[in-house]
Design a protein around this nucleic acid. Structure first.
Lengths: 139, 139
DNA sequence: TCCTTACACTACAAATTGTAGTAGGAGTCG
DNA sequence: CGACTCCTACTACAATTTGTAGTGTAAGGA
C-alpha cells in the first residue's frame, strides 16, 4: 500500500487520494462494520447527489488493487474494509513524509519546523523539546 | 509558481517534476547563463541519448506556462532561465511542506521528527534544539 | 422460468507528462 | 533574388491517474 504523492492542495485524506476516493475512504474508516458497495453508495447519496453504483464500484475495486482496501466474498456480494486503520495509515504517512522531508531538505527543514510548529500550535514546541531530551538521554 | 505534489518516489527535483522536466531544471539551474532550447538539448544529449528538439521545446514551454521558467526573446530564438534560483525554490518547497506536514499531522509529526532527524543526521537534533531555544527566548 | 441484483468488463473524458511531426517565418548563403 | 537552414508554433498521440457510467452476465429468489 504505497502512496505516490502528498498533495499541496486540500487537506486530510484529499492530500493522498482523489476527491471521490477520499470520500469513500472517509466512509469506510468511519464505519465500524465492513461495508458493501451499496452501503457506501448510499452513504455517499446522503451527503450529496446520487453516485452511480458502478462508479463507486470501480473506484473501490481500484483501491483494492492498490492494496488500500480488501474485500471479502459474501453470498451475493463483497464486504469491503480498509487494510489498515485510519490511525495506522496516518501514522505511516506521517512517518514517511517526515523522513522524506528531512532527507530532502535537511537543515533547511529544521529551520522551517520551528516556525511552522509555532504557527500551528506553540504547544508542539514544548513537546518536541521534550522528545529531543529523551532521545539524547537514551544515548 | 505553485507546485502540486511532493512525490514519495525519487529524490531531489524528481520529487517535484517529471523525469525530463527535472533534468531540464537541473541543467538550467546549473548554468550561470540563460540558455536556449538548443543549449539545453545538447546538454541533455551529452548525458544520455538524443532528445528531439521539439520535445525539449514543448517541455520547456510548459514550464514557462507554469511560471517556473521565463523566456526572453533574442533575434532568432529565446533564452530561458528559471524564475527563481534553485535555493529559493528549495526554500519555498521546504517551507510549504513543513507547514503542511505539521498542519496535517501535528503531534504525530513531532514524534516522527526526532527519529527522522536522528536517523538522517543526529547533528540536526542539536540544531533544532538551539532553534527552539531562540524562538522561546524571543517571547 | 423469469426477474432482480451485484459484479465484471469495457469504455470514455480530463489532466499530466513525454514524445515528435509538420508548417511557417526569418535570416543566410550562393 | 532564390534556395536553404534554423527556430518556433501548432498539433497530435501515448501512457497514467481519476472520475464516470453503459452493457453484459451470472446467481439467487419469486
Amino acid at each position: 500500500m504505497k502512496m505516490q504523492n502528498f498533495k499541496y492542495e486540500g487537506s486530510g485524506l484529499n492530500r493522498f487520494f482523489g476527491p471521490l476516493e477520499a470520500k469513500i475512504m472517509e466512509i469506510l474508516w468511519n464505519s465500524i462494520e465492513e461495508m458493501t458497495i451499496k452501503d457506501v453508495q448510499q452513504k455517499l447519496d446522503n451527503d450529496s447527489k446520487a453516485n452511480n453504483f458502478n462508479t463507486v464500484m470501480t473506484v473501490m475495486n481500484r483501491l483494492v488493487d492498490k492494496g488500500i482496501l480488501q474485500k471479502k466474498a459474501l453470498a451475493r456480494s463483497y464486504q469491503y474494509s480498509p487494510v489498515v486503520t485510519r490511525e495506522a495509515f496516518m501514522e505511516a504517512q506521517s512517518k514517511e513524509l517526515t523522513l522524506d522531508l528531512i532527507e530532502e531538505f535537511g537543515s533547511l527543514a529544521v529551520t522551517h519546523m520551528v516556525d511552522a510548529l509555532d504557527k500551528v500550535d506553540p504547544g508542539l514546541l514544548d513537546q518536541l523539546e521534550q522528545k529531543i531530551k529523551e532521545m539524547k538521554k537514551d544515548r
